[in-house]
């Protein structure tokens, strides 16, 4: 158990994190590149076309991974917020700063690819009576709120903890929002376009799995890269950063 507490305490040190995470960043980066390349080419070129949707279903290989990661990013955000408030660990805030733009971009991309997919299959870009569309849109607004709050509070430490309070409140609320929107759509009217339950054969399913894992690796890469950059920005006046800039070959 000793090493857990040691690692936990070390995680609080920006300098340790910066050095320690360099190989992880490279690893995640390469893994993301390889997996996303393999999964995308496999899914977009080699996988057989859907018997009903034709080639248009192929956007699933981009759409589903982005949306899954967008939701996971918010969960991570809430967890980081909790760590920040409970243990006052500065690195948790660095993580939050790193995640918000990525999560926002993934949510927006998920909505966009969903709309592009919806046009040929459902015949519409947007459908208010579909619960998943609406709750993803709400997720985007939750990200916007966090971003706006961070921009609005000049003092960095207060901004961090205000965002943490909000991220946790959002995390508690997400299941309620999701449930209420689902309930609303079933009550409102029978969903005009419900997504077909796709019982996928392995040749179609495996590339999706590869891309989902690849997208998580991309998440890891972006998060670590942004965290390390943020660390350098925050610690720019410390001697180790000055030393690092002067002699980048010596870590």
């Amino acid at each position: 158990m000793g090493w857990i507490t040691t690692t936990w305490h070390r995680l609080g040190s920006p300098r340790w994190f910066y050095g320690m995470m360099a190989p992880w960043q490279t690893g995640f980066g390469i893994a993301a590149l390889v997996l996303l390349a393999v999964g995308s080419v496999w899914g977009l070129v080699w996988a057989p076309a859907d018997y009903q949707q034709g080639d248009s279903f192929r956007i699933i290989y981009i759409h589903v991974p982005t949306v899954i990661v967008a939701q996971s990013a918010y969960m991570t955000l809430g967890a980081a917020g909790l760590v920040l408030l409970v243990w006052r660990m500065k690195m948790a805030d660095v993580a939050m700063v790193a995640i918000v733009p990525f999560g926002m971009a993934m949510t927006a991309l998920g909505l966009f690819t969903g709309a592009v997919w919806g046009r040929p299959t459902w015949g519409t870009w947007w459908e208010w009576t579909d619960a998943r569309l609406v709750s993803t849109l709400i997720l985007l607004f939750l990200y916007f709120g966090l971003h706006a709050l961070r921009q609005a509070i000049p003092a960095a430490e207060s901004a961090a903890r205000a965002c943490a309070v909000l991220a946790i409140a959002g995390l508690v609320n997400i299941p309620i929002i999701k449930y209420s929107v689902e309930w609303w759509t079933t009550l409102h009217q029978g969903s005009t376009f419900s997504m077909r339950r796709i019982n996928m054969p392995a040749v179609m399913y495996l590339p999706l799995l590869v891309n989902v894992i690849g997208m998580y690796c991309l998440f890891g890469y972006v998060m670590i890269a942004r965290m390390r950059t943020e660390i350098l920005r925050r610690e720019r006046d410390t001697s180790w950063v000055v030393e690092l800039v002067r002699r980048p070959d010596v870590r």
Binding site: I138, F141, L142, F144, G145, A148, L149, A152, L166, A169, G170, N173, I176, I177, Y179, S180, V181
Partner: peptide, 12 residues
């Protein structure tokens, strides 16, 4: 900003 933060949570 207040609206942006709170209104999504009041949707239910």
């Amino acid at each position: 900003i207040l609206g942006l933060l709170v209104l999504p949570m009041l949707i239910p």
